[in-house]
Nucleic acid binder design. Structure first.
Lengths: 367, 367
DNA sequence: TAGAGAACTGAGAGCGCTCTCAGTCTGTTG
DNA sequence: CAACAGACTGAGAGCGCTCTCAGTTCTCTA
């Protein structure tokens, strides 16, 4: 705090350059000198000034995390916390700082301008952004600026931006198949917002699972949600009129809404209605009944995003120094895993709820 | 990205200094010149280089947020998400960046060293830290370095560090009094970890409420928890043997554990057992039954932390420039609010659970 | 023990920006 | 119309660090 390289150099009786070498662990310093400098450094709690170092090196040690919007409820649902935790951890491991960039909604152009200029200012070595919040325009700008970036979730319009995401389709397929194997024939689904690629992929997984067992897709068993509990509740309430015996939900919050709707309608979960969620948040164990859910390795996805980004940054730097090995940065799809809890059960033909429109039960073959 | 002040100056046919004035909105630039420069700046998407600016100005535009530990479950409980959201928002409003500093546990000294030297490096204009995670030693060091800081939660050993926190004692008093007013006489409590000041304050609020109505404090009705669901469950399970008719829990997660324990013991909430939580997390509305909880303005606390910090930073800067008005930065206590939901009810003398050791019901006077 | 080569050290030129200070250019006044 | 205040502008000296390059000191080998 109180000291500069210059002062430490004076105190140790060497030049600035030598102190710099010692501080950065470079070779070519006599052992005795090295120790003397180290002692002075420690005695004075010297630490190199970050901004000066960035300026001199022409590189930043900061990674930007563009995700936080004015979207408090998204944050509070816990998904982002876990993700952020993985991201922060990996940043620390790579010795980068993680800086939170409150993402601007596409229509808030002044905020977006500030955001972009802060990125343009070279404060960030790279940026992690969420497909959900990153506007297409800002992605385009960042591409033009040549800022390394990684997207959490695929961004269809920007296929060239490396991304990390769970195997949404595979997971939804697995969750739906679980229900089908339990003998359910009328499996409904509550999707996420259909402008969201992950929601679409999950719906596709659901469709695939149905078609595999020869059940034709019934549009009336699909309701669009928005990944939130309230919408999940309303959607489920509407769906229950169609007498499904099971509902596959696009995420856990939606599933919690569905459970609430079922209870409200006097149905027992899982005896009258089986429910599957997606994300396997910690909350799944705390609901009544505990929620069967398709799990994704959220923290690991966050970590991998940073790993990918750091690789890109490194490549960019070596490119500048003449190294020419280019090649496309890979994206990563993470496997999902079904966590069976107590919200799903074998199809129950005797449930009063299932008697109305000819349930046609499937032969149960529990996994 | 691609441009420096120098280049913009050349393009606009003026000197560096003039471009600097325009970019920083300073006076004393002819209108015509100002516009010409602005145009060049915009055409080239110029933004000043952050590190260079910090270096030249001798100030950072970054605030450090020291809280994230390797404590994934703390994060995932949502409290920190909401707090972080308030913090991030206020930082953006004050035009600071928010950088996440993964806090080191006190026993991880190498990590702590890195952390401290990054702070010492002057990258941060100030630091927000959590009383829960900030080690006393790092606080002492930061005080020595003169880094402005604000603590989320009081740190008894550092009374001079400004802090923001909810009125824990008042809130606990309110929550407990609510139960007493419902006629409960055997009100148990599950505390937070007793090395945590907030947990202690909440316990004190509980004691105060009891003493106010002349009920003597019964140690056997107190169990120590750790703000987590699992410990809440176990603590409640143990407490139930003492036949309390109500439990005041130090936070919502603990309360959720208590609900689970009650159900496991065949008790109905609230008919056999009333339960109150603390924090009023969004999850309170989703439990069965919805949880009565003492609410604190989490996001506002986060925002205020930054407001306080920014004031300190400003004062420090003006001090350096000769301004001498010092004075102690204020701390802030935020009011709590009781959210009554369905987990609390009037004392029920006919509950089988309440028949054992002479319940001595209090006369119910519902609020 | 001279000479080559390796190991070590320091001087100095930036990185891109800010900010002071001196100089230039107005537009008023007396 | 000379003189002067006030508005404007640019030169230049850093901010604290890194990194190259030239110079110095060792350490071997012949």
């Amino acid at each position: 705090m109180l000291h500069t390289l210059e002062q430490i150099a004076a105190l140790a009786g060497v030049s600035r350059a030598t102190v710099s070498r010692v501080v950065n662990g470079q070779p070519n310093v006599r052992q005795a000198v090295r120790e003397r400098v180290m002692r002075v450094v420690e005695e004075n709690h010297y630490a190199p000034h970050g901004a000066a170092r960035s300026l001199a090196r022409g590189e930043s040690n900061n990674i930007g995390f563009m995700s936080w919007g004015n979207i408090a409820d998204v944050l509070s649902n816990g998904y982002w916390s876990i993700l952020a935790h993985g991201i922060a951890e990996s940043c620390a491991a790579h010795e980068y700082f993680l800086t939170v960039l409150p993402a601007a909604s596409s229509n808030d152009s002044s905020r977006q301008g500030i955001l972009m200029s802060s990125i343009a200012s070279g404060q960030f070595a790279g940026v992690v952004l969420s497909a959900q919040f990153g506007s297409d325009r800002s992605i385009t700008m960042m591409k033009e600026m040549g800022v390394p970036m990684v997207c959490i979730g695929r961004k269809p319009a920007h296929a060239d931006v490396p991304f990390v995401q769970p195997d949404n389709m595979g997971g939804a397929h697995m969750g739906t198949t679980h229900l089908l194997n339990l003998g359910h024939a009328r499996v409904a689904t509550i999707t996420g917002p259909m402008n969201n690629i992950e929601a679409i992929e999950r719906l596709n997984g659901y469709k695939l699972a149905l078609s595999e067992v020869g059940i034709s897709f019934d549009e009336s068993l699909v309701m669009e949600g928005d990944f939130d509990e309230a919408r999940g509740h309303d959607a489920a309430q509407a769906l229950l009129k169609k007498h499904p015996s099971a509902i596959f939900c696009a995420n856990d919050l939606t599933a919690m809404g569905a459970i609430r709707a079922a209870k409200g309608a006097g149905l027992r979960v899982p005896q009258d209605l089986s429910i599957v969620g997606f994300d396997n948040m910690p909350i799944c164990e705390l609901t009544t009944p505990p929620l069967t859910s398709v799990g994704q390795p959220i923290a690991e996805i966050g970590r991998s995003a940073i790993d990918l980004l750091v690789k890109q940054i490194a490549r960019q730097r070596s490119d500048k120094n003449g190294g020419g090995l280019n090649g496309h940065a890979p994206s990563m799809l993470f496997p999902t895993q079904l966590m069976v809890r107590q919200s799903t059960a074998v199809f129950n033909p005797r449930s009063p709820h299932n008697r109305s429109p000819s349930p046609k039960p499937r032969k149960s073959r529990v996994q």
